Amino acid sequence: MNCKNCNKALNNTQKFCDECGAKVIQNRLTPKVIAAQVNEQFISIDNRFFRTFIDLFKKPGTVIDSYITGTRKKYIDVLQYFAISLTLAGIQVFLMTTFFKEALVIDPEFMKTIESMPGQDKNPMADFDFSFFTKYQGLIYIIGVPLSAISSWLVYFFLGNRRYNFTEHLVLNLYYSAQIIIITAVLSILFLVLGLNYLILSSLIILPAFFYLGYVLKDVFKESHIETFAKFLLMMIIYAVIYMAVWIIIFIILAFTGTINI
Rank of each mutant, 00 (worst) to 15 (best):
E227N: 13
V155F: 01
W153A: 10
S116T: 10
K231C: 04
E109C: 03
I205T: 04
K122R: 11
L233Y: 11
M117L: 12
I237A: 12
A185P: 01
L139K: 10
S177L: 03
M244F: 12
V220L: 05
Y141E: 02
D219G: 03
Q137C: 09
A185R: 01
Y164K: 02
L233V: 13
M125F: 11
N173H: 14
P146E: 10
N123S: 05
A126G: 04
L196I: 03
N197C: 03
L170S: 10
Y239S: 11
A126E: 04
A149L: 11
T228S: 13
I180E: 01
I182Y: 01
M235G: 07
F232N: 06
L172E: 06
L199Y: 01
M117I: 06
V241N: 11
P146C: 06
I181E: 01
S116F: 08
R163S: 08
A230W: 08
F158T: 09
S203V: 08
W153V: 05
V155S: 01
L199S: 10
L159E: 06
Q179K: 15
L204P: 09
E168Y: 10
S203H: 08
K122M: 02
P146I: 08
G195H: 09
R162L: 02
F191T: 03
Y198C: 01
G195C: 07
L201P: 00
M117E: 13
N161A: 12
V241Y: 00
S116A: 14
F191R: 07
I238W: 02
D127V: 00
A126P: 00
N161F: 07
Y212F: 15
L170W: 14
N165W: 12
V186A: 02
S116Q: 15
F158G: 00
P146F: 02
K122S: 08
K122L: 03
L194N: 03
P208C: 09
P118E: 05
V171T: 15
I189V: 12
Y239H: 14
I143F: 01
I200E: 07
L187E: 00
V220N: 02
A240Q: 05
G214A: 12
F221N: 13
F130M: 15
M236T: 12
A230S: 13
D219V: 04
T167P: 01
Y212H: 14
L170H: 11
H169F: 09
G138R: 07
Y141T: 04
S131P: 07
D129W: 00
S202F: 00
K231R: 14
K112L: 05
I242H: 07
M117R: 08
Y141L: 07
Y243T: 13
V171W: 05
L147G: 00
L207R: 10
E109S: 05
S188W: 01
Y243V: 06
M111T: 11
F210C: 14
L207E: 10
I180H: 00
G138V: 10
V145T: 06
W153T: 08
L139G: 07
K218W: 14
Y175E: 03
H225W: 02
T134S: 07
L159R: 12
